[in-house]
Design a binder for these strands. Structure first.
Lengths: 222, 222
DNA sequence: GATAGACTGTCAACTTGTTTACATTTAGTG
DNA sequence: CACTAAATGTAAACAAGTTGACAGTCTATC
């Protein structure tokens, strides 16, 4: 592994929170893999080979029906880790993962992690914390799909992707936004147009500029 | 705690799989509570007070929107445990839980469990296994909602509730089945009627008799 | 700066499920 | 047995999204 990759890894927040010894051990077994745009990272049903950490780029986590429809569960940003459920229970992958753009991932092999966990309860605890976080996200997503309208869900998904200060542009195509929200591209367009007429957003090519995040927030806060 | 309750507890599969000493310790701190029909067990957003085990009766796990719509996430049967995510991460309850019928629950206080976990890695592992199971269920539910039709989801939900041999009667009203599947009572009725005309099921008062589980299985297996 | 490919705008026909409304059946209870 | 509350049957009007089709727009890149 290159020196520069080790640097990037040791700065990763999740790893940085671990005891120095455990962190060093994990970094020493980490493999760095580069994925081209659209390349598959792993498939639903696959073996629990390891823990994946996104160093740079972007990864789409999705599932597909037999009919070929795809739904996007989430899009991961650099710094995030995934695949922990397979590490913990040995079960198969729950989703497909694809690189949206050229991406660099760290892969910690399952056996190595389990080995470190045995000697380091902190690492095990960190894995469990990751799982808890993802589990809560899943519950939130279920609630959203059953209790909120497409318009409300779209507002949520957009706001998740805006920096904390509440303004800025979310770079995503209308088709992808639709897949993330669970509606068609055409419906996505209609909702965005409605919002634009109220000056809550501005539609830009391959993106949405948030002008009034408070208004979007209000959609599902009452 | 009464002697008879201790007996019931020690026969519980999840507890029975734990080392004898840990099991005894957990049983000694367990509180048994009886809930009347429709009584609330806990609410979404509540404190992570403990791990709940259903000894007898039935519990509905659900969430509600601001508008008052309720969706049923699952119905628990005796022997099942829930509430582990709050034990592990200290976060708030993810769902509401209500007793469907008069039910008896064992509650293991959070502090006591964490204490036992420290001395007993087996217990911690069992909690994590429970969380993994629930997390995978959540992912499956999300897939189901986004990728399958109401008819397919209804078939899945019904089949989950039939004994393994593939025939029998599922005791549930059409309204509740609807809430579980995410459709209205009227749509539920329409789907069931369609199935009955094909002799896949028979509609009975407050229940559905499965006649051809293979046919239902086929709905989402191709 | 031409051009291809991806993205967006827009519409009408269609599908699916909800809502509203009311009649009917069922099971339990005094 | 009569009565009541819950559950079920059914249909028309309505709402919300999807699909398919096609024209227009943007961006990278050759």
């Amino acid at each position: 592994m290159r020196e520069i990759d080790k640097m990037a890894l040791s700065k990763n927040p999740w790893l940085a929170a671990l005891p120095a010894r455990a962190r060093a051990e994990l970094i020493s077994v980490a493999k760095i893999r580069r994925f081209a745009e659209h390349e598959r990272v792993h498939s639903k049903g696959g073996e629990p080979d390891g823990l994946y950490g996104l160093l740079s780029g972007e990864v789409r986590v999705s599932a597909s029906s037999y009919a070929g429809d795809e739904i996007v569960f989430t899009r991961l940003r650099p710094g995030q880790w995934f695949g922990e459920i397979g590490i913990l229970d040995g079960g198969e992958k729950t989703h497909d993962a694809h690189a949206v753009a050229m991406s660099e991932l760290a892969i910690l092999p399952r056996k190595a992690i389990l080995d470190v966990c045995l000697r380091n309860p902190e690492v095990h605890r960190a894995l469990v914390a990751l799982l808890c976080e993802h589990c809560r996200l899943a519950f939130t997503a279920i609630d959203a799909f059953l209790l909120y309208s497409p318009e409300q869900r779209m507002a949520q998904r957009l706001l998740e992707r805006v920096p904390a200060d509440g303004s800025g542009t979310v770079a995503i195509s209308q088709s992808e936004l639709g897949a993330l929200v669970g509606v068609s591209r055409q419906s996505t367009n209609k909702i965005l147009k409605r919002w634009e007429s109220r000056v809550w957003i501005r539609r830009v090519y391959r993106g949405v500029e948030i002008c009034d995040s408070a208004a979007l927030q209000k959609l599902f806060a009452d």
